[in-house]
Amino acid sequence: MSANVHGTPRSSTILWATLLLATLLTWSMGALGETGRWGVAALAVISFWKGAVIILDFMALRHAPLLWRAITMGWMIVVWAVIAIAYIKGLAQ
């Protein structure tokens, strides 16, 4: 038997509901039209948080060896950093 790393039904249901609320929020931001710099920043932060929930809680990497958590979270940090740099580069056009 292995240590339980998958949380409880209650905790995962709360996370799922929060993820859906965050999706509704980002969808409404897009539906409002021009998101603007701060809107894009908020969108990126919310999307990053959603990804972190998937990595840490749904994939159960919160309880994995630090190296695996660092690699996956590091991947997401690098991807969003690259997206941010490219977006800022585009603003300067």
């Binding site: 998101t35 969108l43 990126a44 998937i54 990595i55 994939m59 997206i83 977006y87």
Partner: peptide, 16 residues
């Protein structure tokens, strides 16, 4: 698969 979509969707559909 879910994680990747959570970046793909805002990047391609929303951010402008």
């Amino acid at each position: 698969v879910d994680l990747v979509w959570l970046i793909l969707f805002p990047l391609v559909y929303v951010i402008h």
